[in-house]
Amino acid sequence: MARSLLLIARQAPWSGLAAREALDIVLAGGAFDLPMAMLFLDDGVFQLAAAQQPAAVQQKDLTANLQALQLFGVEELYAAGRSLRERGLAEDALGLPVRLLDDAELTALLDRFDEVITL
């Protein structure tokens, strides 16, 4: 039985490698058909903002890659409602369909997975 994995992405997309590395982990897991989910937390929710233009800072378009997650078998995508509110991000400003979780749901989410990786 494959072990399930929750990837918590909590870094903004265009500075540093963390956001890219988090995505690479789930893409690799998808190749192995692992049951996976991804949670966007803290600055990680900035990865979800629509209409970003990473070419302006010579970066590859991570947000386009994120759109492929479901094809890679990452069926469950979540974001922390608290993180969105703290950053003034509205749900309809997001470029990726995610389910918003409140604090109690966040706690319960971790318990459903065999492994958790926070980047």
Binding site: Q67, A68, L71
Partner: peptide, 21 residues
């Protein structure tokens, strides 16, 4: 078309899923 949309090359499983879709 996959590459234009997602900016990456699919591994086998996503390729199969996308083709089926």
């Amino acid at each position: 078309r996959f590459y234009a949309e997602f900016q990456l090359s699919p591994a086998t499983r996503p390729l199969i899923r996308y083709t089926a879709q």
